[in-house]
Measured scan of single mutants.
Amino acid sequence: MLEGKVKWSNSEKGFGFIEVEGQDDVFVHFSAIQGEGFKTLEEGQAVSFEIVEGNRGPQAANVTKEA
């Protein structure tokens, strides 16, 4: 699992980007967020995730919010 911080997200469009130190930003779709209820990410929020190869390149999977 990698750790990063949410660079920005748009809940209306359903995606955002995660900033990882020393690496390119990672695309995240809201379907990759683990948990119940409305899935949102806040700018600056710490997250853990895996990287998978998506249709348009690397993207985050199994995203969990850190406490």
Rank of each mutant, 00 (worst) to 15 (best):
I18Y: 03
E42Y: 13
F49Y: 02
H29A: 07
N62A: 06
I33W: 06
G14A: 09
I18A: 01
T40V: 11
F27T: 02
A32D: 08
G54A: 06
E3S: 15
E19R: 13
G22C: 08
E21M: 11
Q59V: 10
F17K: 02
N10K: 05
E19N: 06
E36G: 11
E42S: 11
E50L: 11
A46M: 14
F27P: 00
K13Y: 08
D25Y: 06
I33F: 08
E12C: 15
E50T: 13
G22M: 05
N10L: 07
A67W: 11
G57M: 03
E21A: 12
F15H: 02
F27R: 02
Q23L: 11
S48P: 00
V47Y: 05
A61G: 07
V26G: 00
V52F: 09
D24N: 12
A60I: 03
A60L: 02
E53N: 12
N55R: 15
H29C: 13
E19V: 09
K39V: 09
Q23C: 12
E36T: 12
L2C: 10
G37N: 08
W8D: 00
R56D: 06
G4S: 02
S48D: 02
S9C: 15
S11F: 12
G14H: 10
E21L: 11
S11R: 14
E3R: 15
N55H: 14
D24G: 11
K13S: 06
H29T: 05
G44S: 04
S31F: 06
L41E: 00
N62D: 03
F27E: 00
A60M: 01
Q23P: 03
L2T: 08
F38A: 12
G35Q: 07
V20I: 10
S48K: 14
P58E: 03
G35V: 06
L41H: 02
I18R: 02
K39E: 09
A46H: 14
V63F: 02
F30Q: 03
F27H: 01
N62P: 01
A32R: 04
V63A: 03
K7C: 10
V28K: 02
M1L: 12
F38P: 14
H29V: 05
V52C: 10
F38I: 13
A46I: 15
E19I: 09
S31M: 05
V26A: 01
N55F: 15
K65F: 14
T40G: 08
Q59T: 07
A61H: 10
V20T: 07
E12W: 12
S9R: 11
D24V: 11
E66D: 10
K7Y: 04
